[in-house]
């Protein structure tokens, strides 16, 4: 009973955070909402008995990736986003897509409840089991994914350190860049 109440509580927080993420107009508030979503997802995993996945969720997503998000927002001093009237692509593809997804999920839930629901603790979630899955049963996909990520990292490094294109006159003294005040003005604030 307590489990169910807590599960619904964190589920509500998760959805509320996700909605707040979309509604907020300032990037830092959106990023913080995303942290709330990540953390409440971790709480859900914990309630389902997947302790290791919960810890990794907090450690990797809430603790590392979102910190980088927040740093980037702070560093670029991103201001409030502008409100537009919405794009036509969103209404033409997005809305039917959401409806389709919802119908698909509902249909699966209604027709195959045996394949989707497991009692708490039925799925093995301790570190040893996950290690066996990753490094034994699914070793090849795991390694292929690692190589893929490595290629992406190397690509990012190459793009970031791209030398000046040949043929253009090289400026002896760099053009003074447009400097931007590090601290936000009042109108940038949410």
């Amino acid at each position: 009973m307590l489990h169910l109440i807590l599960f619904l509580f964190f589920g509500t927080i998760c959805v509320a955070g996700a909605i707040n993420l979309l509604v907020q107009s300032h990037p830092i508030n959106s990023a913080l909402s995303l942290i709330v979503v990540m953390a409440s997802l971790a709480a859900e995993y914990l309630l389902l008995g997947a302790e290791f996945v919960a810890a990794v969720q907090v450690l990797v997503y809430a603790g590392a990736i979102m910190v980088l998000f927040v740093i980037t927002i702070m560093l670029l001093n991103a201001g409030k986003e502008e409100r537009t009237k919405g794009s036509r692509v969103a209404t033409l593809i997005g809305v039917p897509g959401v409806v389709l997804g919802g119908v698909l999920v509902a249909w699966t839930l209604l027709h195959r409840p045996d394949r989707l629901s497991f009692p708490v603790g039925a799925l093995k979630g301790d570190p040893g089991d996950i290690a066996r899955l990753l490094f034994h049963d699914f070793l090849l996909p795991f390694e292929v994914t690692s190589v893929l990520i490595l290629i992406a990292i190397m690509g990012a490094v190459v793009l970031a350190s791209r030398p000046e294109p040949v043929g253009r006159p090289v400026h002896t003294s760099p053009r003074p860049r447009e400097t931007r005040e590090l601290v936000a003005t009042e109108k940038d604030r949410p």
Binding site: I35, A39, E51, F52, A55, V56, V58, L59, A62, G63, A64, V67, V70, D126, P127
Partner: peptide, 17 residues
């Protein structure tokens, strides 16, 4: 917890916020 160490690391990593 059987993942006590990860919990400590996870919580301290949130402290940076």
């Amino acid at each position: 917890l059987n993942i006590g160490l990860l919990v400590v690391l996870g919580i301290t990593s949130m402290g940076v916020y």
